[in-house]
Amino acid sequence: MPSTDSAKRIIQCLKNAGISIVASLPDAALVALINELDANNDITHIPLSREEEGVGVCTGAYLAGRRAALLMQSAGLLNSCNALTTTALQFEIPMILLVLHAGAIGDMAFPKLGQVTEPVLDALGIPTYILSDLDDAPALVGGGLVQAYNMKKPVAILLDKAVL
């Protein structure tokens, strides 16, 4: 079961990185994170109806001076590929993609997604890190954001179910 403690720690990492807008679409494993986002007054939570919108939302937020992240399952990452390419990469927009790594080891629900997620990110040229130990979260979220702004592109953090 997703844990509230893990969710609080990850949200704290986003806050410490100065991320103030998070767009999201749920997965069962992301419920605690999304509830925690809604309860948090420092972060504007924008619940989406399809993930590709989130690339646009994060872009709009960035253009107006806010640091933004998009929280979704890996199926949503696939839904977002056009906007990632023709908006985020085209205009060099930094953002953090927090992606539940469905179909990764230990998750039997979406084996096909598990196989294509990393190759798709690689093809897009989006730097990708895997969060498999919660103690690494501050370094990956903070460092990932610095890298996103330095490279001027999205950076993906794949969330193993184990950390949630």
């Binding site: 767009a23 924008i46 590709e52 690339v55 646009g56 939302v57 994060c58 709009g60 001076g65 908006t87």
Partner: peptide, 12 residues
């Protein structure tokens, strides 16, 4: 993407 980028900007 207009409605989405505009939405993010408006929220910001």
């Amino acid at each position: 993407s207009g409605s989405s980028v505009g939405l993010g900007m408006a929220m910001a």
